[in-house]
């Protein structure tokens, strides 16, 4: 029958989820094994039990493991943030950055790293950068939340968010114009995102904060499903729209802010992972879509981080370059295979 024409898979959902989970595990292990130093599985096992070679132990436990954890939670956070905003704005091209969260982070990072010298700073510590990015991102979130309660409809909010983004970018451009070349180079690399240099403290903040918010967004799946029919219908079915708006904006923005703070604005995952989840599952039901987006977001991010490290080793590519280059064709392919629009 026509019913299933548009589904790309006919596989049962539990199988798909098991497949995604297994792939994720494989990629995480690959992320830890592969690199400038190859580390075998048994070495990893020994390192985990604190019995291995001290060099390997450092590489595994202090560098690669936290980085892999960060990629998993970072990818998942961006995917869910994008999904929430796509539903909220009923717009398939919404991504985690539409509300200006990353622009706020970028502006603060620019202030710290580009004008730091003027204020007498010799070098910029990564902690300071992360703190600046987090403050910038959360500042924009606070502004958006205040506005979300006041504005009549979500499209206005979308435009306001974009305007805030543009204003922050303008400030950033201003700083770039007056900055020195080397600073601009390292700043530009920051804006392209990277999971390198994650320490356990940072990874833990991202993982714990991310996990809490991911669970919170899963608890929203019932009102989110009602929102698929638009705000009026949702309200008529008993959804408290004003509260839901604020909750969605807070959860999605804080998820994005967490990732941006430590990894910079990682492009594409937040836009593409929700679509990939929808297309592979053939469903917009958030009860399955949110877990799928989490798994797919984590999957793509770990895979892309691996590629970013390995393809042109020892030069490490910015992760945004890899995500867009890999993900774009996949989304186009899936869209072409399906006849209905998003």
């Amino acid at each position: 029958m026509r019913a299933h024409d548009n589904k790309i898979n006919t596989l049962p959902l539990p199988f798909l989820f098991a497949l995604f989970g297994l792939l994720l595990l494989v990629f995480v292990i690959l992320n830890i094994t592969l690199g400038s130093v190859q580390i075998s599985l048994s070495e990893i096992w020994k390192s985990l039990l604190h019995k291995g070679d001290p060099v390997f132990q450092t590489v595994v436990m202090e560098i690669r493991f936290p980085r892999a954890v960060a990629a998993v939670f970072g990818g998942a956070a961006l995917a869910v943030s994008g999904l929430l905003l796509q539903i909220f704005f009923r717009n398939p091209i919404a991504d985690p950055y539409v509300l200006g969260v990353s622009s706020g982070a970028t502006l603060l990072v620019a202030i710290v790293s580009l004008s730091g010298f003027a204020m007498g700073m010799r070098s910029v510590s990564p902690y300071l950068l992360s703190a600046a990015a987090l403050i910038g991102a959360l500042g924009v979130v606070a502004l958006i939340v205040i506005l979300a309660g006041k504005l009549k409809n979500v499209v206005t909010l979308l435009v306001v968010g974009m305007m805030i983004g543009f204003m922050c970018s303008a400030g950033t451009s201003f700083l770039i114009a007056f900055a020195e070349k080397e600073q601009v180079h390292s700043f530009t690399l920051w804006t392209l995102g990277s999971f390198s240099g994650f320490c356990w403290d940072e990874a833990a903040v991202l993982a714990i904060g991310g996990a809490v918010l991911l669970i919170a967004s899963y608890l929203l799946c019932k009102p989110l499903n009602a929102l698929l029919l638009g705000e009026d219908y949702a309200q008529s079915m008993g959804v408290d729209i004003r509260t839901l708006r604020v909750v969605i904006v807070v959860i999605s923005s804080v998820l994005t802010a967490l990732v941006t703070a430590f990894a910079g604005p990682v492009a594409f995952i937040g836009l593409a992972a929700p679509h990939l989840a929808r297309l592979t599952l053939g469903s917009s039901d958030n009860k399955v879509l949110i877990p799928a987006a989490i798994l797919i977001g984590a999957l793509i991010t770990t895979l892309c981080d691996l590629a970013a490290r390995l393809v042109f080793a020892p030069v490490e590519l910015p992760i945004s370059a890899v995500t867009s280059l890999f993900g774009g064709p996949i989304v186009i392919f899936l869209l072409l295979k399906r006849k209905t629009s998003l």
Binding site: R90, D232, Y233, R278, G282, S284, D285
Partner: peptide, 8 residues
């Protein structure tokens, strides 16, 4: 309203 709830 013209609805486009996606894959529902």
């Amino acid at each position: 309203d013209r609805l486009s709830p996606g894959l529902v």
